[in-house]
């Protein structure tokens, strides 16, 4: 959902997934796996701090570019990114996307295993309303698909 509590909008989303932090980290950083839940798009990156990062469409066009600010497997990944294919979104500049992975209420005695994934996404500068609106439509689709892929072996849907 979009948090409008402060001056600038910020997208926050939490999902719980039946998996391990290591498997979730791998799914967030492996280009072949990303393609399976991100509607054919994939990231080109080695996910090391300071590395260049980009998200590409299936046909090779560039959707977004940026860099890895933090990578602490399997706990925390911070990507600085800017849209490259819609001028009105590109004009809002760089955003910062933070992904945090935690064990959720882990009770080994019950054999229960769920991992909590939290996404924070906000524009670095002022404003950013259009960009945040755009990612707030996309993230629930991508993360729902990621959850399905990890729990069932299949993405929930293709488009």
């Amino acid at each position: 959902m979009i948090d409008r509590g402060s001056n600038k909008p910020k997208f926050v989303y939490v999902t719980y997934i039946r998996t391990t932090p290591e498997r979730l980290w791998a799914a967030l950083t492996d280009p072949q796996t990303i393609r399976q839940y991100w509607f054919g798009m994939t990231a080109e990156c080695d996910f090391k701090p300071g590395s260049a990062w980009s998200l590409k469409f299936e046909d090779g066009r560039t959707a977004d570019t940026g860099e890895i600010l933090e990578a602490d497997p399997p706990r925390r990944l911070v990507i600085r990114w800017r849209n490259e294919f819609k001028p009105e979104l590109k004009a809002e500049g760089y955003s910062r996307c933070t992904m945090e992975i935690e064990l959720a209420d882990y009770y080994p005695d019950f054999g229960g295993k769920a991992v909590k994934l939290t996404i924070h996404h906000e524009i670095e500068g002022e404003g950013g309303g259009k960009f945040i609106e755009a990612v707030s439509g996309g993230w629930p689709k991508v993360l729902s698909n990621l959850k399905s892929l990890l729990e069932t072996g299949d993405a929930a849907f293709q488009k």
Partner: peptide, 23 residues
């Protein structure tokens, strides 16, 4: 809500409940 609705999705897609606990 994220716990409840993540659990609903898991239940429908895998027929197994998701154990997230409730602190």
């Amino acid at each position: 809500w994220p716990k409840i609705l993540s659990g609903l999705k898991s239940l429908l897609e895998t027929r197994k409940p998701l154990v997230t606990g409730n602190e």
